[in-house]
């Protein structure tokens, strides 16, 4: 028996919009810790890890650890039927091949349930150890989204370099080249407008912009994004979900031939 009641149902809607273009089918895992997912894109270049902690739900009942295979496009279709202010409850019965999403309007005058078929997904689960990163950049998520979009009109890849000068996003394409440098800026009115650069060592890595742009679909989840870089590791682009957890995207770098 599974029953997860999320008062801020819009969070789940936003999570699905953030990941459904990157991953088609995925297993959602439910345990005492929370509702989570780990999945790679079809080419195994990017990985998404989601955690919605059990404490973030108004009611969280998960009698035993369970993994439920879902088609994210179908799940998104159903969640789009929930209002932005609706309370969403996810319900499942042991051994059932379906899951139910219940949507309640804030005034309780409309209650809908949508039953979705589950699927068997044979997916590989990866262990991602805690790592020391050479540089961690915290910046407004809308600014990161803007940079990725702007650069992708010039080139296909972005070089992200962190030095003591700041963080530089560079691209090059048939029509020319572009460089965008952000300096640390903590003298802003609101903390969510700050750019904070922690650097242990200078680092420079190249990534496919197509994936970066896909990650920025998570922008509505958080006003800030954290980009963690290390020369031997995939970049981690993290959007924190207030009070609940996170969506983290891991992207393997491109290297010189």
């Amino acid at each position: 028996m599974l029953e997860l009641r999320l008062v801020q149902g819009s969070l789940l809607k936003k999570v699905l919009e953030a990941i459904k273009d990157l991953v088609t089918d995925a297993n959602f895992d439910c345990s005492a810790t929370g509702f989570s997912l780990q999945a790679m894109d079809s080419s195994h270049v990017a990985l998404v890890a989601l955690l919605l902690r059990s404490e973030g739900f108004e009611h969280y009942r998960c009698d035993r650890n369970i993994s439920m295979g879902m088609n994210l496009n179908n799940m998104s279709k159903m969640l789009k039927c929930a209002g932005n202010d609706d309370i969403i409850t996810i319900k499942g019965d042991d051994g059932s091949d379906t899951i139910t999403f219940m949507f309640e309007s804030p005034t309780q005058d409309k209650i809908a349930d949508f039953e979705m078929k589950l699927m068997d997904i044979d997916s590989e689960h990866l262990g991602i150890p805690e790592a020391e990163y050479h540089a961690i950049v915290r910046m407004p998520s809308a600014e990161f989204s803007r940079i990725c979009k702007d650069l992708s009109s010039i080139g296909d890849t972005v070089v992200i370099s962190v030095t003591k000068e700041g963080v530089k996003f560079s691209t090059r394409g048939d029509i020319g080249a572009a460089n965008i440098v952000l300096r640390q800026n903590t003298t802003v009115d609101k903390p969510e407008e700050a750019t904070i650069i922690e650097m242990n060592e200078p680092v420079s890595l190249t990534f496919a912009l197509r994936y970066m742009n896909s990650f920025t679909k998570a922008t509505p989840l958080s006003s800030m994004v954290t980009i963690s870089l290390s020369s031997e590791l995939p970049v981690v682009v993290e959007y924190k979900i207030a009070e609940m957890g996170y969506v983290r995207f891991y992207l393997a770098p491109k290297i010189e031939e």
Partner: peptide, 14 residues
Amino acid sequence: KGVQLIITEFYRST
């Protein structure tokens, strides 16, 4: 323009 690495080259199956 370079070789695209894949995630499974970095992290192991559990």
